[in-house]
Design a protein around this nucleic acid. Structure first.
Ligand SMILES: [Zn+2]
Ligand SMILES: [Zn+2]
Ligand SMILES: [Zn+2]
Ligand SMILES: [Zn+2]
Lengths: 139, 139
DNA sequence: TACCACATTGCAACATAGTTGCAAAAAATA
DNA sequence: TATTTTTTGCAACTATGTTGCAATGTGGTA
């Protein structure tokens, strides 16, 4: 259980620290995306806010987690399941945010459709976020 | 020039105030989307921060402007060109944020593609935000 | 035009989200 | 274990957004 966490950290040439182990473990145990506040709530007083921000940024930089934009002013993060690496994310799936339970899902099997942009516009990244009612809340 | 601003406010049963006139005029003169800070910079000391927030919220509620989510923690707003009304937005176009000049465009002619969601997921809104290099910066 | 009812604004205070510099502590390395 | 390097915690700061309330402005009526 811990081995996968440590393997991932080592593979990305990150030193093994308590905060990185704990936060990465949290992501691996969670099925939805996590906001900074979710992590702060789940780890209690264990780590400083700043440490959590820096750990998340490190993970994003290394291609371990990716960000999910939102209109509610709280960036969410989720594990990269695709072959992301330092500086190169390839998370080409859509995200779903539930209006009721606020859970944010990576819909790994729903790809972001290709677009034909007007002349002169060059895409480097495409975010597609769907909101509505999730499969647990619609039951 | 002013008439269109006042017409829009009247059509939406909003009282005509300085802040509403000035801010709506700003949107009509601007080709890109505006963040709260852009408006504050453009109006100087004329209005309180809170008034700007409340004016933007009112315009969103009335279907005059729509929001554009982002990962940089600053919601942007743009005029609704489609037939939006109170409580019912139909802004079905994609948005483009330039990594260089930070301009955010409504690409009105590029529709958000329809999606097949997994069972149980029901969409109420879809946001598609593309980032990269815009037509002015790529020249 | 003057009055009144109601809506809007400004202010103060608060809440949440995120950043920076630096010294102390912990990991990696030798 | 000793040394080097990285990471952490703290304090202070910036940006973003909200709420309650008294003062002001707007729209309608006489
Ligand atoms: Zn749900
Ligand atoms: Zn994802
Ligand atoms: Zn738009
Ligand atoms: Zn540009």
């Amino acid at each position: 259980m811990h081995t996968q966490v440590i393997d991932t950290l080592k593979k990305n040439q990150l030193s093994i620290t308590d905060s990185r182990k704990t936060i990465l473990q949290l992501f691996m145990e969670s099925d939805g995306a996590l906001a900074h506040m979710d992590i702060e709530n789940n780890t209690g007083e264990e780590f400083d806010r700043v440490t959590i921000y820096r750990t998340l940024q490190t993970f994003v930089d290394k291609g371990i987690i990716h960000t999910i934009p939102s209109a509610d002013n709280a960036i969410r993060y989720a594990l990269c399941k695709d072959a992301c690496s330092e500086g190169h994310h390839h998370d080409n799936h859509i995200h779903f945010m539930c209006d009721h339970c606020s859970t944010t899902y990576c819909l790994d099997h729903v790809e972001v459709p290709a677009l034909q942009l007007p002349g002169g516009f060059m895409a480097s990244r495409t975010d597609m976020v769907v909101s509505g009612c999730c499969n647990r809340c619609s039951k």
